[in-house]
Design a protein around this nucleic acid. Structure first.
Length: 268
DNA sequence: AGGGTAACCCGGACGC
DNA sequence: TGCGTCCGGGTTACCC
């Protein structure tokens, strides 16, 4: 659920608060959250580090520290909070970084899906990611070339972060519908024109999502409104907003996949 | 290489 | 209302 738009917004909201030095880190409340040997090792490494900047790559958020990079993946239920003033530990707080006496940085995650890494080189975590869908590298020409050389079906390919970094289940379904492409179409079979449509649709759904503050269906991200704009996602059995045919739901590579069988034909 | 499956996790939705 | 079951997001591991 938490995808690109939330990441952008959260990073923006955090920026003003992230000026302190880390003077204390709590033990992790949930050890599996952290991809380091132990909470103690984590505390030892991170204490005293200074936050030099914040950023995002794909679905990963990161804090650039003095000697490490702290990477955070919110997955679907994670949330980042910069708490000013008194901090009271809440039920789902998984990682707590006290920055100053009255600034606390909290990674909260009710469903424990999120992950945190503390590494010397961010490439250890980010190194295999594909290009940014809103970046300069992602061009229609790039997409066409890649699709031609790929034998996968469109849906699994588009959610593969090593192919393109940032699309999740929701935006992929929406982009395929907007470009009238069936999720099971073989990537190498699609035409030049269709690839161009897909390129445009990917950019459109992401920009639209960012504009609407994200697609979160949960209570997690307060204010996300893209969930009210879905044309196919979660709308199985309801009419397609384009043609009125019933939206179908199938499973592709274990992901619920929503599409309009009339707009998105497997042939042609 | 690509496809299929299980596992991780738990709040909430749903059925009885 | 209360209890049990299922769902779903992203990713990795492991199988064929």
């Amino acid at each position: 659920m938490p995808e690109l738009p939330e990441v952008e917004t959260i990073a923006y909201n955090l920026r003003p608060a992230l000026t302190g030095k880390i003077i204390l880190s709590s033990d992790l409340l949930w050890k599996r959250t952290l991809a380091v040997p132990s909470p103690r090792a984590f505390s030892r490494r991170i204490r005293g580090q200074k936050i030099d900047g914040v950023g995002r790559r794909g679905k990963f958020l990161f804090l650039t520290l003095t000697g490490y990079t702290l990477l955070i993946h919110l997955r679907m239920s994670g949330d980042l909070l910069a708490i000013l003033g008194g901090y009271q530990r809440a039920r789902h707080d998984r990682l707590i970084l006290k920055l100053t006496e009255d600034t606390t940085f909290v990674f909260s995650d009710p469903r424990k899906f999120g992950r945190v890494w503390l590494v010397s080189d961010p490439q250890e975590v980010l190194g295999r990611l594909g290009p940014e869908p809103l970046g300069d590298e992602f061009t229609p020409d790039w997409l066409i070339t890649q699709l031609k050389s790929c034998r996968q079906r469109l849906k699994p390919l588009l959610v593969d972060q090593e192919f393109l970094a940032g699309l999740g289940n929701i935006y992929t379904d929406e982009a395929l519908h907007a470009s009238k492409l069936h999720p099971l179409r073989k990537a190498s079979d699609i035409s030049l024109g269709q690839a161009g449509d897909l390129w445009q649709a990917i950019r459109m759904v992401l920009e639209d999502g960012i504009r609407k503050n994200g697609a979160s269906i949960d209570w997690v991200y307060r204010g996300g409104d893209y969930q009210n704009q879905f044309r196919v996602y979660g709308r199985q059995g309801q009419p397609c907003p384009v043609c009125g045919n019933k939206i179908e739901k199938i499973f592709v590579a274990q992901r619920g996949t929503h599409f309009c069988p009339a707009c998105q034909r497997l042939e042609g």
